[in-house]
Design a protein around this nucleic acid. Structure first.
Lengths: 99, 99
DNA sequence: CAGACTAGTCTGCGTCACAGACCACAATGG
DNA sequence: CCATTGTGGTCTGTGACGCAGACTAGTCTG
């Protein structure tokens, strides 16, 4: 039996939430993605995606760059260094405790 | 990039909650445990542990047998078949999506 | 008798996820 | 010109949830 079980209690709740886990895992791999791409990947509603992005940003895990493609709004998202390392730590803790 | 990312959206929330994840992982390994043992493993308060156990039972994942050790109450917990297979499925989905 | 141990229940607090309505602006099709 | 669609939101309401802590009840120990 793993003595690391207790690490589960300290899992980063910001990342642990499935919706944000999808977002973080995506951005961990692709480095940068726009709002629409994320919405299609995650199948979240706009409002919901928007609020999850805000939560990630608020935690300092996400950088949101609002710009334009022509005159159409374009929202680019990428993980910060802190976000990347938190995601790594999350994965590592999970792996130690469960696998 | 894993096309299994969307599986994360369907993660079993009953198991996904860290407190219950600890409980389920513990019981998956030890088969049976009493209330006090679980409390010490998880460091949850009594009330909290009790309500998480109730939630697992309500989902049909946990069997709770209330009995006595002498005249002192003894609460024995074990995963049902359904509980074991749900835990396996949870682990598998996580592994496919993240690792 | 006082206190600790086992196993709860119940209440209240703050938070959260999610859906859906609404909004603003730009581009497009008829 | 008008209606619709696309992009990217904000805001609100609802219901559920996690957690701490207070309280209960019976037993056992000093």
């Amino acid at each position: 039996m793993s003595s690391r079980l207790l690490e589960l209690a300290d899992l980063d709740r910001v990342i642990h939430e499935p919706a944000r886990l999808m977002i973080a895992a995506t951005l961990y791999l692709v480095k940068e993605a726009d709002f629409l791409y994320l919405q299609r990947q995650t199948k979240l509603t706009k409002g919901n995606l928007s609020s999850h992005l805000a939560k990630l940003e608020e935690a300092g895990y996400l950088e949101i760059e609002k710009t334009y493609r022509g005159k159409i709004p374009l929202t680019l998202c990428s993980l910060t260094r802190k976000g990347r390392s938190s995601f790594q730590a999350y994965e590592a803790a999970l792996k130690r405790a469960l696998f």
